[in-house]
Design a binder for these strands. Structure first.
Lengths: 225, 225
DNA sequence: CCGATCCTTCGACCGGGATCGAAGCATTCA
DNA sequence: TGAATGCTTCGATCCCGGTCGAAGGATCGG
């Protein structure tokens, strides 16, 4: 009964610990070089090279050669979403790699998912915009309303009118959608520019500054329901 | 940089061809016995037994022992969504197992995804309901409005008021969300009861009857945009 | 109780693939 | 040009895990 796409190939590609670490490192959205990824994955450069070739061949990564460096990124937001979906399953199965520590708490609060904001803060943004009518769910998926577009522009975001289309991304820690796509990306950039939050050293986690914390709460209020 | 859930374990679990076939067979939403799954996967019962034990252990499947039979199903809708996400990646990578044939076309038109309707017909249901205001996207995700609830009840669906909460499921062939959850499940059941469509032998594909085709188009119209 | 069916456990085999050392290109910089 | 750096290819090793035959429970029908 072989129907549909060959899922096993892709899953097997993600299923190796070294490759999974590579994908995890790239979930932050930054392009990383082969040697950096080798260190992240905990393998030698020649082993990493083999893995990177396979991931690229499998259309999970894309490469940008610059001088003697090769920068790798996730090939598409779809890849990031698939990885998050798998994280959700792994979390549900209780297969956390470490006992939850302070870093883990920080990750659940706010982190980079590909290029946008995830974690409870990310979900809060989504909910707040949805409640105030700045975000609608129509035929083509999630979309910013005109009011929402104006609202975010007032915030300092630079968004074309044809960039109202958004991506939702299932949050592995919250099990709820958060805001991805162009808008999500621009929003995170602006929040960092405003000094609301900064990346935690060597991690995808993001920590709010005291000032940013309260500003964020005011800007994206959410009613309990 | 080992952060978050252990994704490699889960992905490796899905990454074996035999296990992927098992998951694929269960995507139709029916409970299947160990021997049936062995046949689906193309391995002997003792091999399948080993795989099934691993999948159950990994919280991807759940088992119901009934007499000397053991019925397996996907452990949760999350599993089904993760599998669909992987199918999307595989399809994007152009790794279809077969050259697209008539069966493949049927699959893209309408199929079972877990217990609900997927494919272009599934997406059409979602879009139609969203356009007519029967479906909203709020803080807790996708939800049926009161009007939508009444609309579907008029259709013959039996739905509690507290079952307005819906699940969205990313469609691998359309790359767009379709309607899952309780409502999606009830809807598919009703459509089959009305004789609108019937399962294609030995496949997840669903084919519309002539009568069902036009009735469906009238019931779930969608404006082009 | 007996045979049939469903499923599992055990043991042995085998292959694919992950890994790293050594060597080879390519690029940059002095 | 020569040395250093980033990355890849090649080859050898090794181990994990998929596979099936044989045998052992478990459950049902009579």
């Amino acid at each position: 009964m072989k129907e549909g796409p060959d899922i096993a190939r892709i899953a097997a590609l993600i299923g190796d610990p070294a490759r999974a670490n590579i994908l995890g490192a790239l979930m932050a959205g930054h392009a990383l070089t082969a040697t950096e990824l080798a260190a992240e994955a905990g393998v030698t450069p020649q082993t990493a090279s083999s893995h990177l070739a396979q991931l690229t061949q499998g259309a999970l990564l894309s490469v940008l050669a610059q001088g003697r460096h090769r920068y790798f990124t996730l090939a598409s937001p779809e890849v990031a979403r698939a990885v998050e979906a798998l994280m959700g399953l792994a979390a549900a199965a209780g297969q956390l790699r470490h006992r939850p520590g302070p870093k883990d708490t920080a990750l659940r609060a706010a982190r980079r998912c590909y290029h946008h904001l995830a974690g409870s803060a990310g979900v809060q943004v989504h909910d707040s915009l949805a409640q105030s009518g700045h975000l609608t769910h129509d035929a083509s998926g999630l979309r910013l309303t005109d009011a929402g577009l104006a609202h975010l522009r007032a915030f300092g975001l630079i968004l074309d009118s044809n960039e109202s289309q958004c991506r939702t991304c299932l949050d592995w820690s919250e099990r709820r959608p958060h805001l991805g796509g162009k808008a999500g990306r621009a929003l995170l950039r602006q929040m960092q520019a405003l000094g609301w939050l900064r990346p935690l050293e060597g991690s995808r986690a993001l920590v709010f500054t005291a000032r940013g914390q309260s500003a964020f709460a005011t800007a994206f209020p959410v009613a309990k329901g």
